[in-house]
Design a protein around this nucleic acid. Sequence first.
RNA 1: GGCGGCAUAGCCAAGAGGUAAGGCAACGGUCUGCAAAACCGUUAUUCACCGGUUCGAAUCCGGUUGCCGCCUCCA
Length: 493
Amino acid sequence: MQIYNTLTRRKETFEPQHPGKVGLYACGVTVYDHCHLGHARSCVAFEVMVRHLRRRGYEVTWVRNYTDIDDKIIRRAHETHTSWEAVAERYISSFQEDMAALGIPPAQIEPKATEHIPGMLEIIRILVDKGFAYQGAPGGDVYFRVGKFPGYGKLSGQSLEDIQAGARIEIDPHKEHPLDFVLWKASKPGEPAWPSPWGPGRPGWHIECSAMSMKYLGETLDLHGGGLDLIFPHHENELAQSEAATGKPFVRYWLHHGLLTIDQEKMSKSLGNFFTIKEVLARFHPEVVRFFLINSHYRSPLDFSDAALGEAEAALLRLYSTLGRLEDLRKHYPGVRGPAPADFTAAALTAEEIDRLLTLPERFAGAMDDDFNTAQALGYMFEAVRLTNRLLEHPAAEPGYVALLAEVRHNLVDLGYVLNLLQAEPQEMLAALRQKGAELKISPQEIERLITERAEARTNKDWARADEIRKELSEMDITLEDTPQGTTWRVKG
RNA sequence: GGCGGCAUAGCCAAGAGGUAAGGCAACGGUCUGCAAAACCGUUAUUCACCGGUUCGAAUCCGGUUGCCGCCUCCA
């Protein structure tokens, strides 16, 4: 497998420290508000990586944290006249609802910062003992001494001078260097506080990830990642404090995904240009959202728009349509399974095309092995779908025909599992997608009644009345489809 | 200002030295009582622009332009 490593800015062959085992730490969310779609992108990206690694036979330990204490949480508690604990608890629940709705299973370990204070204090103690950290004033903040760590800046590719040149940081008289960052933040009266050798306070942002990741995954992690926007300062600081404390490499492969944008601008709370996961899911099927999120490579920027989600919906519909036809076929031949006979030939496809259809799993895996290239993997699936549709258009009587399609069906669903797509019952999904969750201008009962009336008219060859009903429904954005199994309807797309 | 990234058809998007995947949309055809769906076909001699390396360049190198991200909390 090849994985792009932010530290070296290259794709590298992936080799975990311990054969067959992989530890992944993905930076989670700060729980002070509902999550937006950018957070969903992050979670889906790591989920898919984990699924593919497991498919490749690795035993993966996936850790995703909650930052459940920080300034924004405290501020939110003040604003809403409640406790910081209540704020954290509320938005952890909200996050879990979103994950469940998107079908993302929980990580193996989901640690909370406030439950790991002793581990953070231990790292800070070591850093102070080694001279990498100092307290600015008695009872005050404890800082990391950036100038003492030679590798500072190696992750973001900048020198200390580079960073300082553009720094908009206020000069803090207690800091030795403007870029020294807080490890332990002294609490003001009334603020949440934990006891420490340096006085009551709370952890700085970066130290929690070092403490929690190393506790669960060891001093050197295989994989650690988050959004591109976390490279500096968050991951740079994590790297510095962790390596300063242990003297060992902190992370073997740093993974950073691209950001979700709106009109080419980063979706963010501060810009106010965000949609929460809940808002998006109210309008689009969760699987459509997932498809949208993985239809481009995880490191690319991804622009959100209704049109883009609409395209994702149409594309997913195409996948499920074929799957539905394959499912119908399976019901007609319940005993037949793949694999296809090696010597099977079909009029509709050349030998090369049949081979291509059957080697989908290899090509799919190859794409995923190449830095989790979900876009290419999906491209291969669509190619297989096109070939499959061609076969379905030209039914053959041979048993090999059914066996081949049974194998294709199995492959599509099996590969879909890696992307957490195509796991639903096709007919149910098609019905859900066709109705788009949109407000209907007419009740389904009324539609059914008109369909029945039209069926009667058609039996009597009363084409005028049949067309009239079609037109009537069409004006209410309902499209009728006459199939051998009867007439179905869908909301116009 | 410093650091980094991206520019591929109407839109979205793979490809990273060997002659442009895939999706959406559009148009033509097959099918259909009419449609829809599906299938077939068409839609980039060309990958922002200018140079260079090479037998050969979206792919490598240099420069230009435009957009984005980070340098403050951010997935």
